[in-house]
């Protein structure tokens, strides 16, 4: 059996001291509807946690609360030892929360290289932090261009670096989003349905990129995903949300086979497990 909600909370709290990301009683309501209800859990480095649940479970809203797109009605978000609940989206991004969206979130009239470079530069610290490198022209920033090109090489997009983003295929745009996240070099990678809308032959490319991130970096990766085969393939841990509440949290095999997940997904207890396998 996976941990129940109360068990998972105590599990998370027990490990809270080493947690990279923590949410404490995090929630939001819209009118009378509690979209996310007091979710407390923590996420650790070097692990990929899949956040699953049926449509309307509150997964994307939970992501929005963590990344700051939506202000929380209750609770807190902690990044390492810092409470980031009051910070804006851009401040949280600079602190290390990197977020990719369900819908591609790119700069369509800039080239592929410019998109990556923009992200890499916005993450710079020191005297360039606020962008007042007034005299530094494009051709002077060879190091940034090289860095951006390296990232594009790592996602097999070096050949497209001069292409306008709006002319890329949907799959390439998702790849570019992953590349932009890599350019941010965040502490926490947040992927919201990274394979949504992709053709069958494009899906493995993006999944391989995420797998590479998981293998070669010691980062915290959060993944919202509907496709259970993808979750089974990538996840080290699964957190299940249902009606805005955390209902299960544990190892993938036991969570997927648990009655609570079967009921949440299929409306049946114990039966039809094959559908989720």
């Amino acid at each position: 059996m996976p941990a129940s909600r109360s068990e998972s909370v105590s599990y998370s709290n027990a490990n809270a001291s080493q947690a990279i990301l923590r949410t404490v009683d995090l929630g939001v309501s819209f009118g009378g509807h509690q979209a996310v209800n007091a979710v407390s859990t923590s996420f650790h480095g070097g692990a990929l946690t899949a956040i699953v649940g049926p449509n309307g479970a509150g997964k994307t809203t939970y992501f929005n609360l963590i990344s700051g797109q939506i202000a929380a009605s209750q609770g807190e978000v902690w990044l390492s030892s810092e409470n980031v609940t009051a910070l804006s989206v851009s401040q949280r991004a600079r602190k290390g929360l990197g977020r990719a969206f369900q819908l591609t979130n790119l700069f369509p009239r800039l080239s592929v290289l410019e998109n990556i470079r923009l992200v890499a530069q916005s993450m710079q610290s020191g005297r360039h932090h606020h962008g007042f490198d007034f005299w530094r022209i494009w051709s002077d920033a060879a190091d940034l261009i090289e860095h951006a090109t390296d990232i594009l090489r790592s996602v097999s997009m070096a050949a497209q670096l001069g292409d306008p983003v709006a002319t890329l295929s949907h799959g390439d745009q998702r790849k570019l989003e992953v590349a932009m996240l890599i350019a941010m070099n965040p502490t926490v990678y947040m992927f919201d349905e990274p394979t949504a809308g992709m053709s069958a032959d494009e899906v493995p490319v993006v999944l391989d990129l995420i797998r590479d991130l998981k293998t070669h970096s010691h980062k915290t990766i959060l993944l919202v995903e509907h496709k259970m085969d993808v979750v089974r393939d990538l996840a080290d841990r699964i957190v299940v949300l249902h009606n805005g509440q955390l209902v299960a949290d544990g190892e993938p095999a036991e969570v997927i086979n648990s009655d609570i997940v079967q009921e949440a997904y299929l409306g049946t207890r114990g039966g039809a497990r094959r559908g989720l396998m």
């Binding site: 990344s67 851009s90 991004a93 790119l106 700069f107 410019e114 007034f134 530094r136 494009w138 941010m184």
Partner: peptide
């Protein structure tokens, strides 16, 4: 000079996709 520097790129990002600009750390 400005439009080809970091500030100019941040301006262009703001003009093209404000939400994306915010999410990649640009102080919109």
């Amino acid at each position: 000079r400005l439009s080809h520097g970091k500030i100019g790129r941040a301006f262009r990002a703001l003009g093209q996709n404000e939400a994306a600009a915010r999410s990649v750390g640009i102080a919109v």
